[in-house]
Design a protein around this nucleic acid. Structure first.
Lengths: 256, 256
DNA sequence: GGCGAGTTTGTAGGATCGTAACAACAGAAT
DNA sequence: ATTCTGTTGTTACGATCCTACAAACTCGCC
């Protein structure tokens, strides 16, 4: 069995099939169609198991059964199988979240949150960043040294918010970042005071209004961890801290 | 626990979560946020299990962890959770079918198929009907007495094919069906020769060109089973059989 | 009988479920 | 300071369920 095939089987398993089901389905697409013995001969699925496995695949709408002797099986087309699985997924998703939505706590408004939350992994930090940017009412500050931390979705959100009249400032030591985001209508860029040239760590800072903040660090191995707080006193304190620490003598002098 | 909640948990399980994961996720949306003990108090998940379950939910991107004592958990928004699950699904789907596509048997052309296949369940018969209609090159005959067997997708497909210049004929004893499909541009309707007024069985007939056919029957309990054959000699024989049997004395007389 | 097709039953392994014990810690009572 | 008490977080373990896998068994046919 090739690596590709193993990966495909794993993927099918994560889609809810058993490994036998995945193997039989793949085998039938290899063969076009076939009887139980044909399927068993090209897979490590015991022939006696093919019957029940095929039956469950029929229930899922992934193959069709020819009632004859011997029983022959025929997979549905790839497009049809994909549609069937997708429809099933969407149906389950809707049913699951419909209930969650009906019971979710409404009253816990963000402004009563006084906590700092942690988010691990790039993707979810991205999501959280977009979330914070979208929640801002007046002012946004976005900072990162790493161009790869500026996803197209973040870029689009920044552009949208600027278009809505918010004050959007991008701060970066990195020229690529400044050029890319500075090109957006209504976005102003700035270079941070370089009072720590030797700073190894990198990550991002998002400040939305005066009370929402996200800070992340990228680890040596490339993983990203962020802390964030929305509408909390804690956030305000952090923001003031950052603003104070970036108010270096140089920038003070420059501002006079 | 309400029925709705059980169903939602089942749905989450079919989406790949364990029942504990589903319960904790739902509970945290109820609570807004909370510690392990809070979650345990509103579910039947043991407190000692909440920690590991929450960890796996964090890995899935469905909740965030506040590192403090006690550890507090916060679910991501419903929209974000849905997006996360959908992205995961699409990723797996792509990986799975990419491989299937790469190994699928190309040479088995439909016209060498000599078999009759069976399809169970309304939905999949619908799919197969649309499939046959789409494959036709010249001529389509569609017949059913039951209006509910005419889905909007079938209606749309008939309209499209007629627009492409195919000869599309709809045969039905039922006036609703004739009116509805006859209203489509390029679709002609007909009443079948009623030589069997006492016929209890119902279902549908699809004939595409002279060699693709689908026949279905609706059972007493409302379930539908279809046999179909594409590009086979068998199909041609069946089609001739049907055409012969519908050529009643009356219609013969009328045609003279 | 010999053979292949299809059904049925049984077993081993793994993951989840559910319970319980445990150490670490904080606050209250002594 | 010491003890007591309640909570938190970790870990271990048996019960249960499902999948994977194997082996019997029935049936029809040559």
């Amino acid at each position: 069995m090739t690596d590709d095939e193993s990966e495909a089987i794993d993927a099918f398993e994560r889609l809810g099939l058993t490994s036998y089901e995945a193997k039989v389905f793949i085998a039938l697409h290899r063969l076009g169609s076939g009887a139980a013995r044909d399927v068993a001969s090209v897979t490590d699925v015991p022939r006696s198991q093919v019957y029940s496995v095929a039956e469950s695949l029929e229930d899922r709408g992934l193959l069709e059964v020819q009632q004859s002797s011997p029983i022959r099986y025929r997979p549905v087309s790839i497009d049809e199988a994909e549609d069937t699985l997708r429809n099933r997924f969407e149906r389950e998703r809707e049913r699951a979240f419909e209930f969650v939505d009906s019971v979710k706590e409404e009253s816990t408004t963000e402004e009563t949150q006084e906590d700092i939350w942690t988010v691990r992994s790039r993707d979810r930090v991205d999501d959280r960043v977009v979330d914070l940017l979208s929640q801002a009412d007046e002012e946004i500050a976005f900072g990162t040294r790493l161009p790869k931390l500026v996803t197209s979705e973040i870029e689009r959100t920044l552009e949208d918010r600027a278009a809505e009249g918010l004050t959007v400032t991008v701060i970066s030591k990195n020229e690529t970042v400044r050029d890319r985001l500075g090109a957006l209508e209504g976005v102003t860029t700035a270079v941070p005071p370089t009072h720590r040239d030797d700073d190894q760590r990198s990550g991002r800072i998002v400040i939305a209004d005066d009370d929402n903040i996200l800070l992340s660090v990228v680890d040596d191995d490339g993983s990203e961890t962020a802390i964030w707080s929305a509408g909390s006193l804690f956030a305000s304190v952090l923001i003031q801290l950052i603003e104070a620490s970036t108010a270096t003598p140089e920038s003070d002098a420059a501002s006079r």
